[in-house]
């Protein structure tokens, strides 16, 4: 019993329940006439789509900036990169990398400004990040209308100005990664390229955390006073982490689009931070501690639930409650993390 108690304490009740829930969904799937192959490949596809956006939270958690509810800012950088690429007329798989490249300067500038802002509001990062994310999305809503885009694939046909709400990436970088080395067995589809790319980005972040700067960043998050006493410039580390986080958000949304098929503008990025935050927390991260492992586990569990619940629940109780379950699970997880009394904190 004691051993069991320890496991429960270590994993935490919500995580355990979610894990068991997903597990039971997979068990129940065959009885509900849900094809495991399709479910699994759906889960993997969504895992790959969302993984990098979950990963984008890691640097800021490491540097003690908390959960990056301001992720939409990074997503906006990605959207700018994507739209500019299409505007420039780049096509084919290579346009994916052009998009990432085009998004980079925006991510750097946004991240720098956002980082500096967060440095001035230490202790209130999360609330302010949320609203910075929201206001920037709302601001960009105006910009999508006003910016002088002209590519006919993106602009509203009848008015000739302002971008459409959803823009197809077909002919540009649709499935540029997903189809690379993809494996198809019956209904099972493995987006090898996307998963490899995600693995590569995870490796980059992992590697970064093993450099001098990365080490300093982790120390800043673990104990800022200690880091300062060791001669680390806390504000600089935090800014770097925010820039990195923003850039990863930009890359994340572009990878998402290549699999999803569409660029979603206007209010599209509005609530995108919440599922990512929930995923990393489900993966075992806390407000001030996160690892790549947390990202992988969390993204898989969370996306697994999102794919499995509608199909399984639907066929068992004839009620599609997946949306409600998503809301309750994701926000419940965030709530749980926020109310956990931090040990050793003052």
């Amino acid at each position: 019993m004691k051993y069991l108690d320890r496991i429960v304490e270590k994993t935490g009740w919500p995580r355990l329940i979610i894990g068991l829930f997903l597990f039971s969904l997979f068990i129940a799937a065959p009885f509900a006439q849900v094809k495991i192959g399709t479910s699994l490949s759906d889960t993997l596809i969504r895992f790959g789509m969302n993984g990098i956006m979950v990963l984008a939270l890691v640097p800021m958690i490491h540097s003690g900036c908390g959960l990056n509810f301001g992720l939409p800012l990074g997503i906006i950088a990605g959207l700018l990169g994507a739209t500019i690429t299409i505007e420039l007329g780049a096509t084919g798989a290579a346009s994916l990398f052009i998009a990432i490249l085009a998004a980079t300067p925006f991510a750097l500038v946004f991240g720098w400004g956002y980082g500096n802002l967060l440095n001035r509001v230490k202790g209130n990062e999360m609330m302010i990040a949320t609203y910075v994310g929201f206001s920037s999305v709302a601001f960009m809503c105006m910009m999508w209308l006003l910016l002088p885009y002209s590519s006919p694939t993106m602009v509203w046909g009848y008015e000739g100005v302002g971008l459409r709400t959803t823009i197809s990436v077909e002919g540009f970088y649709l499935h540029a990664l997903s189809n690379f080395l993809a494996v198809r067995i019956g209904t099972f589809f493995l987006p090898t390229g996307m998963l490899l790319f995600m693995g590569f980005v995870c490796f980059l972040v992992w590697a970064f955390l093993h450099t001098k700067t990365g080490t300093a960043m982790t120390a800043v998050g673990s104990n800022p006073v200690f880091a300062r006493a060791s001669g680390v410039n806390i504000d600089r580390m935090r800014t770097i982490s925010v820039i990195l986080s923003t850039w990863l958000g930009a890359v994340g949304i572009i990878v998402y689009q290549q699999s999803f098929g569409f660029i979603q503008l206007y209010m599209g990025p509005f609530y995108m931070a919440f599922p990512a935050v929930a995923a990393i927390l489900i993966g075992g991260a806390s407000v001030n501690k996160a690892s790549i492992m947390n990202v992988l586990i969390g993204a898989f569990l969370f996306q697994g639930i999102l794919t499995m619940t509608p199909s399984v629940m639907n066929s068992i109780i004839q009620m599609d409650m997946s949306e409600v379950i998503r809301i309750i699970v994701s926000n419940g997880m965030i709530l749980y993390a926020l109310t956990r009394v931090k040990k050793g904190a003052h």
């Binding site: 001098k212 080490t215 982790t218 120390a219 673990s222 006073v225 200690f226 006493a229 060791s230 050793g344």
Partner: peptide
Amino acid sequence: DVGLLLDEPLDWNISFTAMQ
């Protein structure tokens, strides 16, 4: 508060300042 990274291993604690 100042002396240690309580959540981190000992080797980190010892080497961090010298590394930075």
